[in-house]
Design a binder for these strands. Structure first.
Length: 383
RNA sequence: GGGUCGGUAGCAAAGCGGUCAAAUGCACCUGACUGUAAAUCAGGCGCCUCUCGGCUUCGGGGGUUCGAAUCCCUCCCGGCCCA
């Protein structure tokens, strides 16, 4: 049986530890994204070597390929992928957004139909249709062997009018109850069980966010996630959304801010009591050539919550052609110890796959150092 | 030597009288990216100008025409065929 215990806090920043089925992770934590059971371009051993204790996999993608039954036979997604630590699986709720409203906006075609029963997805490309209900999502996640299971939710886009946001949140709440009921039924009498997290929605409306949080707390989950954030809303609203919802959540349960974020967003959110994060930024932007660098004395400037403790460069820029300095002189990761900016630029401009690997490794290391530093700050203030 | 096809922006390659500063691809430059349809996408890419716009281009030179990358003459260069 999994558990989470708070080990300290400083103002609102929390330090915690979670243990699920014998696997452990400290919080605050950041989860690299392994949508299809792989952190793009990296081996799980490399992700582990950086220090990560948990990654995020995706229910939707693994359901379709290779199939949850297959993953179950392989011993679960961790075993299958050579990962020795924790896995959280997203429920498919984000695909309601990314294959739905966002696809409509980007490609002019919506691949999602929502009903009370569940979601009908149609595969981009093939058009193949799949139905996922809240129960189905939980079932798949159990088969995948996830340590943390997310409830299926509807992630609405921004902008979203009040009425739509309200209806969406109510659907998400009804689905959350169904997820919980199904989850309980499946684990009745079992000792080893994963954690089940509920997801708070409500777009940018104060009363809806609070309402959503209350509903979920009443149902009772092992952890609470803030969803529907970073879907196009003004960035300043993040602070308020956290201010509205955090006080409603129980102290002794982990809080997970889904899909975020930029380094300064993580810093600010930790100071508002968030314990868990995940984001494609370090890996995706790495693959696209953006590299995160510490600024001088960056660590000591974290506390202000400003974005001035780091900067990013686009390593494929012309100006790095003959820049033979280390990629980040304030970083001691394996990439920075061995390679120059000029070399990394060369790898990008020649399209070598090593470029994506090195950039992902470095950026994930940057994010890990950030999280570790945040933990240390809370620890130090305890003394 | 004769014939023939061709020479277009960094490269490749469309265009064959006006709507052409010239399609497209590559290369190059810049920018986005937040629970991954993303090793992707967007913009720029003759010169000047913030913009409007202006200026010089389609091997060289000379013509025809209101107007030429597009037609004619000539020269230079390349491919192929025949001697």
């Amino acid at each position: 049986m999994g558990n989470f215990c708070l080990e300290g806090n400083k103002n609102n920043s929390r330090l915690g530890r979670m243990e699920i089925n014998g696997k452990k992770a400290e919080t605050p934590l950041f989860m690299p994204i392994a949508t299809r059971g792989a952190v793009k371009s990296l081996a799980m051993s490399e992700v582990e070597q950086i220090g990560y204790e948990i990654v995020l996999g995706n229910t939707y993608h693994l359901w379709l390929k290779p199939g949850d039954k297959t993953v179950k036979k392989a011993g679960g997604i961790a075993e299958f992928s050579g990962w020795n630590n924790l896995v959280l699986t997203d429920s498919g709720g984000f695909q309601v957004f990314s294959l739905g409203e966002r696809a409509k906006q980007r490609f002019g075609k919506k691949g999602v139909r929502l009903t009370e029963k569940g979601v009908y997805f149609s595969e981009p490309g093939s058009g193949e249709r799949h139905f996922m209900s809240p129960e189905k999502s939980v079932d798949i996640q159990i088969n995948l062997g996830a340590d943390i299971i997310m409830c299926l939710d509807e992630c609405p886009p921004y902008p979203c009018d009040y009425q739509k946001a309200k209806e969406s949140l109510e659907l998400t709440a009804r689905w959350a109850k169904r997820c919980k009921d199904y989850f309980e039924r499946k684990h009745k009498g079992k000792k080893d069980r994963p954690l089940l997290f509920g997801i708070i929605q409500g777009s940018v409306f104060e009363d809806l966010r609070k309402e959503s949080a209350k509903q979920l707390v009443e149902l009772g989950f092992d952890g609470y996630a803030i969803g529907g954030v970073a879907v196009g809303e003004p960035r300043e609203l993040l602070k308020e959304i956290l201010d509205w919802t955090m006080p409603i959540l129980p102290e002794n349960k982990p809080r997970y801010l889904m899909g975020l974020g930029k380094p300064e967003e993580i810093v600010r959110s930790v100071s508002k009591g968030v314990d868990m994060f995940d984001c494609v930024i370090p890996t995706r932007e790495g693959r696209h050539g953006r590299i995160f660098l510490w600024r001088k004395n960056g660590f000591s400037r974290l506390e202000k919550g400003e974005a001035d403790f780091y900067k990013t460069i686009n390593i494929s820029n012309e100006k790095f052609r003959e820049d033979f300095r280390p990629i980040d002189k304030h970083c001691d990761c394996s990439v920075c110890r061995s390679y120059t900016r000029a070399y990394l630029r060369h790898l990008f401009s020649t399209g070598e796959t090593l470029a994506a690997r090195l950039a992902s490794l470095h950026n994930l290391n940057f994010y890990y150092q950030l999280i570790k530093r945040l933990r240390n700050e809370i620890k130090e203030s305890e003394k």
